[in-house]
């Protein structure tokens, strides 16, 4: 098994920050808002490794900083400090030292992202097929017929009716929008996929089928994934390892079954006890 992603001491602070920010925020301080300068320490000192074909869960409640972690890694936001190395076959990329064109290249070719809000991942003014075409065009596929075939294959794989290839996503149900997002994310067969609360807000039966789809894809393509969720059920079903975040810090990490059956941190114990 090879490492695909190595994150070290990732931090993200909203606001100008001050010398007291770190010591006055976090789980012990019970806040992520610095009382001295008003900055929000969204993420501090997060480190983890991700291996090829592995699914890592990032769990925590809203405001824990879990989404910020993947947004930093997908270059939606710049990290304040820290390092992330992406290992891609024979090459390796120091993510935060790349220029914006290189970052965009990685985003388009080697990473995929599925957002909770489909508006972030899809262009609602262009068709489902056009959304997938956009990602293929970004990666320099210039043959209309080939683009169309690939878009149809991807939508069929994610169980979107082919008769709806040329419909606008705004006319789709929430579950279907997520399927189109997944198809779009997979268009370039990325080795690394970020999933940010992808099933939140969907009907239970729809959630279940999306999760099945994600697992099937993981088994078929051996895509490494970082799954951000507050839902312990999603963590249990999808992930092999997980990290638990609170107020921007990782308070616990381990094998998923161990975190769920033998949580070490008081917060995780409370979290698990509230569900089981």
């Amino acid at each position: 098994m090879n490492k695909i992603l190595e994150v070290r001491n990732l931090s993200r602070i909203y606001g100008k920050g001050c010398a007291l920010c770190i010591e006055s925020t976090g789980p012990e301080a019970d806040t992520n808002l610095c009382p001295h300068c008003g900055s929000v320490v969204a993420v501090h000192d997060v480190s983890f490794d991700l291996f090829e074909g592995e699914i890592l869960g990032v769990m925590g409640e809203s405001g824990s900083g879990k989404s910020t972690v993947v947004k930093n890694l997908y270059f939606d936001q710049a990290a304040t400090s820290g390092q992330a190395i992406f290992y891609d076959a024979a090459r390796q990329y120091d993510l935060f030292s790349l220029n914006s064109a290189q970052q965009r290249w990685l985003r388009n070719h080697r990473f995929g992202m599925v957002y909770q809000n489909p508006h972030l991942g899809l262009n609602f003014n262009i068709t489902a097929g056009g959304n997938i075409a956009e990602r293929l065009l970004m990666s320099d596929l210039m043959d209309y017929g080939a683009i169309r075939d690939r878009a149809k294959t991807l939508l069929a794989r994610t169980e979107v009716l082919l008769s709806r290839v040329d419909d606008l996503p705004k006319h789709f149900s929430g579950g279907m929008q997520q399927r189109v997002q997944i198809a779009k994310a997979l268009a370039t067969q990325p080795p690394l996929l970020f999933l940010d609360e992808v099933t939140t807000g969907l009907d239970l039966s729809v959630q279940a089928r999306i999760l099945d789809l994600i697992l099937e894809i993981q088994q078929e393509l051996k895509t490494a994934m970082v799954v951000v969720t507050h839902d312990l059920g999603v963590i249990r079903l999808l992930t092999g390892r997980a990290i638990v975040m609170k107020y921007g810090r990782v308070i616990e990490s381990g094998l998923t079954d161990q975190i769920l059956e033998d949580p070490q941190h008081a917060y995780t114990q409370r979290l698990v006890a509230s569900v089981l």
Binding site: G254, L255, D257, Q258, E261, D262
Partner: peptide
């Protein structure tokens, strides 16, 4: 058993 399997730490 769970300790060996590491479901328990």
């Amino acid at each position: 058993l769970k300790g060996i399997y590491r479901t328990y730490l």
